[in-house]
Design a protein around this nucleic acid. Structure first.
Length: 273
DNA sequence: ATTGAGACCTGTCGGC
DNA sequence: TGCCGACAGGTCTCAA
């Protein structure tokens, strides 16, 4: 489920009942998501106040009074479900692995059937030197992410553009759906070599400007729509629309599906070059 | 250095 | 109905 827009929706939903509130209790019902939880996980959270809560790429980062940061990643199937203050907390659902009881009265359940999600605690030092977090590319909706930055990152690369967009070191937050969507908006082929959006000097070509605009547009709209609602394939231009007509006016092409890096890519072979 | 394949884990869906 | 394979919005590791 979760790419940048979904993670941002989760952050927004949690913020009013999570940020600046104390963690009164933590139920750890399974301590093994993608990695085993760190030692003393529960004890290190117990009684801590969430001083700040932000999103970086697809990660959620909660800074605690202790200066440690609770790092959460939703993986493929993860979500954080909120029971608002004043409501009866429901019985734990299947695959509720960690449940936070906040001083706001809210109960927040981390649910993740496939357990590709991640939850850990990092000291400031280890946060700053984290091999993944410290090498993430720019936030796609920030001013740091522009055609020059994208072209520089793609310069000389022969890997297909779609694969490059999924590389979180190039741009952080795109996943399989929005990478395909952005390439369609930009009318760029997913198979094209990533390096072709840059000149040999590393300067952006026109396609790099188009792609950056498309990424920002696709993500901005998805965030605005508060994609936390249920998955509906008709919200997408190409994703999950194999054999259906291309939605670009006057294109007349048909959406195709093929595999790249072991994952499905959807695109229009007619208008995406 | 890049790149591709396989791994992790559970659920769902379509075909027989 | 039941079984089986294919596939799913992510990331990591390992080999070539």
């Amino acid at each position: 489920m979760p790419e940048l827009p979904e993670v941002e929706a989760v952050r927004l939903e949690l913020d009013p009942v999570f940020t600046r509130y104390r963690i009164d209790d933590v139920e750890v019902r399974r301590a093994d998501l993608r990695d085993r939880f760190p030692r003393r996980f529960r004890a290190r959270l117990f009684g801590q106040t969430v001083e700040a809560f932000r999103r970086r790429a697809k990660y959620l980062l909660a800074t605690l009074t202790s200066d440690e940061t609770l790092v959460m990643h939703l993986g493929m199937s993860g979500w954080l479900n909120v029971s608002p203050p004043g409501t009866d907390a429901p019985e734990p659902a299947k695959h509720d692995h960690v449940i936070f009881h906040m001083s706001s009265g809210a109960v927040i359940a981390f649910n993740d059937p496939r357990r590709f999600g991640l939850m850990t605690l990092l000291t400031p030092t280890r946060l700053a030197s984290h091999p993944v977090l410290s090498t993430l590319g720019p936030e796609p909706l920030s001013d740091d992410f522009d055609a020059a930055a994208l072209a520089r990152a793609c310069r000389g690369r022969k890997t297909p553009l779609k694969i490059a967009l999924l590389d979180q070191r190039i741009v952080a937050g795109l996943g399989n759906i929005y990478a395909a969507e952005a390439l369609h908006v930009a009318a760029l082929s997913p198979m094209r070599a990533a390096g072709t959006i840059a000149r040999v000097t590393g300067e952006p070509r026109e396609s790099a400007y188009r792609l950056v605009d498309a990424i920002k547009q696709v993500l901005t709209r998805a965030v605005a729509r508060q994609i936390s609602e249920r998955y509906r394939s008709d919200r997408f231009r190409v994703y999950d629309r194999e054999s259906e007509p291309c939605l670009r006016p006057d294109c007349g092409g048909t959406i195709r599906r093929r595999t790249q890096g072991g994952r499905s890519t959807f695109y229009c072979p007619r208008c995406q070059r």
